Computed example of a mutant assay.
Amino acid sequence: MKRSSSKSHMIEEMDGFDRLPDSLILLIFNSISDIKALIRCRSVSKRFNSLVPQTESLSLKVDCVISPESDSDSLFTLFKSLLKSIHDFFKPDPKTTARNQTQNSPARILSQFNRIRDLQIELPAGDLKLEKGAVIKWRAEFGKSLKSCVILGFRRVANPEGNSADEEINFTGGLKTRVVWAISALIAASARHYLLNDVVKEHREMERLVLVDREGEGTVAIEKEGLRECREAARGGQWEEDGGRTVVPCVRMRMRHEQRVQLKDGVWMEGVTLVVVRPCSGGGDGEDAELALGAFGGGIYGEAVQVLLKNKSYLLEMNSF
């Protein structure tokens, strides 16, 4: 009997995991952040099951949101299918929710967490369909409406040895294309923002919400103050929407362009355009550098932005849409 008691005592001493405080385990869960992995952790033990819902930093990856309709070249059709798919993702039809919602549905997964402060949602693809060789990167900050949007567009990243017939791009001739780029990015940003409405309302402790895509095309960010604005607007019935997206206010677009930008590693970016968008009631043009570098402060995009900020700018104003 003494020998058995001694053996049991040794096992208890070896199992020191339960001695870890809840705060340390929650720190580990916040570092994991991936919702699917955290859900699996709930089955480990009763203790994990009770602690996982308290995780504050989460990352949700959406596997598929675009329907076959999006094969159309129509930008409207693409956004329509994207909106419908993601809207169903976050807010299923109440008539079918009860019978169709499974344990793995995103709406139910998010509802299992009650202390979300930092949430990142990743879509499987970007929203824009561009002509061959064109690349657009954008980042938009929102409150109840658009606060700012920084757009960086270029034709290609090329090596100087590879000459092409259309290397020289005339800015005036391409202005229409660049305006279309900017409007398309704003529509994509406002559509993503609208889709976050229910998530913002349901998780009132959230302090930061970011929606990105796996391709790195666009980012919508809502910080603490912006989230507060969203909730107040929702309570007051002031959340403006038009066809499944947030209304873009009257904006001022400050555009800069460079035909070719040589980067430090010898690579050239061609037809590079930087657009800083702010509501007409927003701050002064002196904020351009801060916004642009904040959106694209590192890597080759940051290099391009620093060059473009030294260039002459063109101002365009656009009515609310």
Rank of each mutant, 00 (worst) to 15 (best):
T102M: 03
S190K: 01
K2E: 14
L227I: 14
T172R: 10
E202Q: 15
I35T: 02
K144I: 07
A107G: 07
M253L: 07
G298Y: 10
S320V: 06
L263N: 01
E131P: 13
M14L: 13
Q103A: 09
V272H: 03
C41T: 03
V200D: 02
A107V: 11
F48Q: 03
W239G: 04
L316V: 15
E161M: 12
T219P: 01
A37C: 07
D285N: 11
L175P: 05
S23I: 14
E225D: 14
S57C: 03
R156E: 12
Q306L: 15
F113P: 02
K224E: 12
S184H: 08
T273R: 09
E131A: 13
Q101M: 06
A185T: 12
Q112F: 06
I300Q: 01
R139G: 04
N311M: 10
S57P: 00
F17H: 04
Y194L: 14
A125E: 11
E141C: 11
L78K: 12
E161H: 12
C149G: 02
E56V: 01
N100C: 08
L315A: 13
D213R: 02
Y194T: 02
E69N: 10
E303W: 00
V220H: 01
V267P: 00
A182R: 07
T219H: 02
M269V: 15
V247Q: 08
V210R: 13
K201H: 11
S70H: 05
L186P: 01
N311S: 12
A98K: 10
I183P: 00
L196T: 00
V65G: 02
Q306R: 15
L293C: 14
S85T: 11
L274H: 05
L24Y: 12
M10S: 08
R155P: 02
E207A: 12
P92E: 01
W181H: 15
M14R: 14
G143M: 04
D18M: 07
N104G: 01
K224P: 09
Q101P: 00
S105F: 06
R178L: 09
A182D: 15
R260W: 13
I183W: 04
G244V: 04
W138V: 00
Y301A: 01
N30Q: 02
V135M: 03
G294P: 14
F48W: 05
G173Y: 10
A107H: 08
D73V: 08
Q54I: 14
K129H: 11
C149K: 02
D288W: 06
K310N: 15
L60H: 02
V135A: 04
P53G: 03
P279N: 10
V251K: 02
T97Q: 09
E229G: 05
Q238H: 11
N159D: 10
F76G: 01
L263C: 07
L309C: 07
E232C: 12
N319L: 08
E12Y: 07
Q103N: 08
L274F: 08
F90P: 05
S85H: 09
L128C: 04
G173M: 09
D285Q: 08
